[in-house]
């Protein structure tokens, strides 16, 4: 029986990857949560006498133009970058899914209207919209999250709607309707669990993308405001010095790269785990 054995092996390999990257992602999140106690120095303490120092044993990533320890700022910056991203992804996933499920179930005019609104959002360039939001509400991380949320939910609404349309025609949903289930019960107990797989995978893969987008907005000055430590804005602060003090850009850039990589690998592992073809039969 070679086929089942190889399947088991492949599956357990997938599981190992899932646990490995899941643990790595948890470590990143826990690091962000306890970031303040992990800092070797006060990330906001200025020391102009030690400005723009190259990496040394005391300051492993060097210092920025105000003499603040870059390592401490990268560690503390993880909080703003990671938690804003997680909150953003949680909001767009739940809002988009709820809306898509409603559209797929109700259909009719409400569906047509909401889907045209989502088309509108999908057609709008993200940065232009964020600029408009920043113009109206002012800059800041909260408004950057708001701008990205307002423009990013349609992807989830689209997935949830198409999956709901497929599930509503299945025999098991007809059977559940014949069992006397209310619309809410059908949605929560029968539709949602059966459409959650692709949505979850998209959400985990989106963590990396959204982290980049938020960092991008901060880099453009539309996200976190100084002196708040945030990876995107930290890169922005020293972008003029790239030729002379490259380490100041390198440290937050490396942090973004590592965090995005961990969440993308986790997304891939989750996708493999939930792939119906990998299901043990």
């Amino acid at each position: 029986m070679t086929a089942p054995e190889s399947m088991t092996r492949k599956r357990s390999g997938g599981r190992t990857r899932l646990f490995l990257f899941g643990a790595a992602a948890l470590l990143v999140v826990a690091g962000a949560f306890f970031s303040e106690s992990l800092c070797p120095y006060d990330p906001y303490l200025q020391n102009l006498g030690a400005a723009l120092e190259p990496p040394t044993a005391a300051h492993i990533f060097g210092t920025d133009r105000y003499g603040r320890d870059l390592c401490s700022r990268v560690i503390v910056g993880s909080r703003a970058s990671i938690f804003s991203t997680l909150a953003l992804v949680a909001v767009i996933t739940s809002f988009g899914t709820a809306l898509g499920l409603f559209c797929g179930w109700a259909r009719g005019r409400a569906d047509t209207f909401l889907m045209r609104v989502s088309d509108l959002c999908l057609a709008f360039p993200c940065l232009v919209f964020a600029l408009a939001v920043a113009g109206v509400l002012g800059g800041g991380l909260h408004n950057a999250v708001l701008a990205l949320a307002a423009i990013s939910w349609p992807k989830y609404a689209r997935i949830a709607r198409s999956q709901t349309l497929a599930v509503r025609e299945t025999d098991y949903l007809k059977a559940a309707r014949l069992a006397g289930c209310s619309a809410a019960r059908l949605a929560v107990r029968h539709i949602l669990p059966n459409i959650a797989g692709p949505i979850l995978v998209t959400a985990v893969l989106d963590i990396g993308t959204m982290m980049m987008e938020l960092a991008g907005l901060s880099f453009l000055g539309l996200g976190a405001k100084p002196p708040m430590a945030e990876w995107g804005s930290m890169m922005s602060e020293v972008r003029g010095l790239l030729q002379t003090v490259p380490w100041a850009v390198f440290a937050p850039g490396l942090a973004i790269f590592a965090a995005v990589l961990v969440f993308n690998l986790l997304g891939d592992a989750v996708r493999d785990e939930l792939d119906p073809k990998m299901k043990g039969r």
Partner: peptide, 24 residues
């Protein structure tokens, strides 16, 4: 509504596996 008639009418479907929620 289907809920009004489900105590009187019930149905057995063609494909038995597809008539049960795969996650329950």
């Amino acid at each position: 509504d289907v809920r009004a008639v489900c105590r009187t009418v019930q149905m057995v479907f063609q494909s038995p596996r597809e008539s049960f929620d795969p996650r329950r």
